[in-house]
Design a protein around this nucleic acid. Structure first.
Lengths: 348, 348
DNA sequence: ATGAAAGCGCTAACAG
DNA sequence: CTGTTAGCGCTTTCAT
């Protein structure tokens, strides 16, 4: 573990000043160094195995080229594609990503935020901040907020997923297939539940259908996905065994949809003949299910990429926030697979 | 965006020296400050909204409290639990995690490694380094290497998954259920394929069974999981339609197992009555499949946690590597679900 | 228990 | 195009 060489060492060996050597490794555009000198410096650096010390650089320049992503839980199946969308975009601009989990805990959330500023990270992407968090008093750094509904902020840039529109698309599709008694499986955070429930009620109203409370089921979420899954199945089986069971089920996320698929099989219901199932998230698990699960895609990868682009723009243009925040909305798309279809002929 | 307060500002307001103030925020044990002074400093800091600048701290102390994880692809379904295992362990010790993707590209891998040293990260967890990478010339920092086989290093600490043992467990189980013609689905990297194939052949030999080449199928991996999935299904259907189809299939990863499940359903084969299927990885997709997929768990979460612990030990004990590297092996476990069972009665 | 002083390695003016 | 200089904000001896 011998001390690693510094810029001075390189400069000395290359017979130039520290400053010139620095320019060769600098990210800033104005790196005006003669080819010859540059070559000499690079050679010296190579010989010494020099690597710039970014701690020192950022102390001076106030830039770490590190971005923070604060999400609830990386273990959530839809996190990876979001992250990848962000990373791919960032990588193109030489930024790396630090990922924090909040586990839906406002305290951890705050703690993470503090770590973000301590570490001098250059930007922040924050997923669905908890209500306890006052967005207006977020640390003062470029940021974009990811929300799962059309919640706009007058303070910060946002990228939102039009989940309400997604629910509508799923229901519209199911209705167009002849289903008029559609069960809905709700779960997740309070706002998620209320939003999607409202979308469901709105749709029923506008389609002139009669709402049946029995068809609306809330699945309380547990910390571990497996636990939620087990719980979901118990509730779903009730729905399926009820005398007047729905001909279709819309699950507000794929885990619930998958649970429905599994219970249908166990209960001896043929999908989609006896029951159509539509999920939401379009996880790989949906594609790989048997039968493959029809699902509403939230385009997490694109959401990530868009958020990253938005953030980089902020970072690169000093006065970007002066015209007020930018609120972007990403549409959902229905991916029709084998778990859904027209309602069966009226049973004689 | 006004300049944020520094330690001197805090010290001034609290009527002490910079040094004393520093001790209050320092991580090092020897923080000997009188309660009274400490309180005063904390109060001043609070009033000013002071937050330590870690760039400055690490320039001086050579510690960033940031760890690098270099994996192939975060989008891989088994990445999240690995990451979470690492993060949970690190968080307990005040470290955060920076995640890099290599996409199985040796160039990206090297590039990431350079970023690790530039950023002065305190440690490195490296997943299955490519053959092109000479492990002995990894950057000189605490590190642990994650391998998917019992590959030991005489240079670095490793945490390995006993996948070969996992394959054996799956086959032993299937054989104990009466299956003696077991198809195997291979895929992934070259070394993964060869290792698992050898395990398969070894098992067949020791069990005194006759190897049939037709039962061994290689699924070439594509970049996108969906593409691999489609490709897999085409190859699997051949296996299922062949005159002498196997009574069981062992898939060397869950994606392949899920593909088999889906094809079985499409081909009208009842699982597990007509065909038993066992996967490997124990993804959530396995649990949520219909029927739920029996799978070999590689305990990714624990692997991550163990790697993180190993790394932290190295970091905290100067001379840890003097006694030579530590090589840990994590066993696989078979999780029996509904996709596998005894072989059907001999067909009359 | 506290303070004074000397940098860590680099960047950012500014001069030439 | 290149060199000089002055710190960035903190940690770390070394005194007191």
């Amino acid at each position: 573990m011998k001390k690693s060489p510094t810029l001075v060492d390189v400069a000395k060996l290359a017979n130039t000043s520290k400053a010139t050597a620095a320019r060769v490794f600098s990210r800033s555009k104005s790196a005006n160094v003669r080819q010859e000198t540059k070559a000499r410096i690079l050679e010296a650096a190579d010989k010494l195995g020099y690597s710039p010390n970014l701690s020192a650089a950022s102390l001076r320049s106030k830039k770490t080229y590190l971005i923070a992503l604060c999400i609830h839980d990386i273990t959530n199946p839809s996190s990876p594609s979001l992250i990848r969308g962000i990373q791919d975009e960032l990588a193109q601009h030489g930024y790396d990503l630090v990922v924090f989990n909040s586990d839906w805990d406002p305290n951890k959330e705050k703690k993470n935020l503090r770590a973000v500023v301590r570490n001098q990270l250059d930007g922040l992407i924050l997923q669905d901040p908890s209500d306890e968090l006052d967005v207006s008093e977020l640390p003062d750094l470029p940021s974009v907020i990811l929300t799962s509904n059309e919640v706009f902020s007058t303070v910060r840039n946002t990228v939102s997923t039009d989940t309400v529109g997604g629910v509508r698309k799923a229901l519209t599709y199911l209705h167009s297939m002849g289903h008029d008694r559609i069960g809905i499986l709700l779960g997740g955070s309070v706002s998620q539940i209320t939003n999607r429930k409202r979308a469901y009620l709105d749709f029923y109203k506008s389609a002139g259908l009669k709402v049946e409370d029995r068809l609306i089921v809330d699945v309380p979420f547990k910390t571990r996905a497996s636990d939620t899954f087990v719980m979901a199945k118990e509730l779903i089986v009730d729905l399926m065994r009820s005398p007047q069971r729905p001909s279709a089920i819309f699950a507000s996320n794929d885990m619930l949809g998958l649970a429905a698929l599994q219970m249908a099989q166990i209960e001896g219901l043929q999908v989609p003949r006896d029951l159509s199932v539509v999920g939401m998230d379009d996880l790989f698990s949906a594609e790989s299910a048997s039968p493959a699960l029809t699902s509403v895609s939230k385009h997490r990868f694109q959401v990530g990429a868009q958020a990253a682009r938005n953030l980089l723009n902020q970072i690169n243009s000093e006065h970007s926030m002066e015209k007020g925040p930018i609120n972007e909305l990403v549409e959902c798309t229905l991916v029709v697979r084998d778990s859904s279809g027209p309602i069966a002929e009226v049973d004689v």
